[in-house]
Design a protein around this nucleic acid. Sequence first.
DNA 1: GGGCTACATCGACGGCCATCGAAGCAATGG
DNA 2: CCATTGCTTCGATGGCCGTCGATGTAGCCC
Lengths: 125, 125
Amino acid sequence: MSKSETVSAASAPGPESVVPCCPPLDERPLTAEEAETAARMFKALGDPVRLRLFSLVASHKGGEACVCDISDVGVSQPTVSHHLKKLKEAGLLTSERRGTWVYYRVEPSVLAAMGRLLTTAAARK
Amino acid sequence: MSKSETVSAASAPGPESVVPCCPPLDERPLTAEEAETAARMFKALGDPVRLRLFSLVASHKGGEACVCDISDVGVSQPTVSHHLKKLKEAGLLTSERRGTWVYYRVEPSVLAAMGRLLTTAAARK
DNA sequence: GGGCTACATCGACGGCCATCGAAGCAATGG
DNA sequence: CCATTGCTTCGATGGCCGTCGATGTAGCCC
């Protein structure tokens, strides 16, 4: 059961646990649970192929892209699908089927949370 | 020219003349090389234990901590040393021996580069 | 229906990685 | 010089993960 939150109700239930996650890294030591949550997101971007796929979606016009637009990253099509699933499970992407194609789109809130986790630490220096 | 960009490095040379590594994730698709470099950094923070260790160093008074201060994360001491080595290899931490103890300290420039990679993408939304 | 395209899932394989105990190196204190 | 403490390195092991070909499913078109 996902916590009631300001999640856009239009989308499917999807993977829950989409939260601000954690305080800035230099504010307080992360607890074991916080580290587990945050590490899962960083881990999702810790693969070159996934990072390229994510960047391809994020930089695509309209903020979304179908798999056929981004599947030229040097690996087979099943592998692309596998990585997109990983990114979706990490809460970084959402997918929606429209007719023949499946469109992927970035989840801005999670991305902002990750950025805040890092930039605040640097800004306070 | 109006200040359409909130980038702090408008004219200042900046102490961080180091390579920013990559453009923001939503600006242009990353190349294979860029993705390889950036993924290496994200991967370093993609482990819960490493993330806790990094947070412990970053939040410690004085901006540095010896291993004895942060080795209580639930794993053996050799494992702690192993993870600290990984963080150092990723360029996120630096170490210095002073007498009996070895002190670790965060590398602000690399941290800032990672944050910029994420926050710019979110801020431009 | 038949065929085609777009994408996901399955099963398997190879390699990387987190973890540990044991041992090694460094510095201090007696 | 020896013992002790702080930390790193070594070697081994178990598990996770990225990758693939084959197969399955969903939607479009003739």
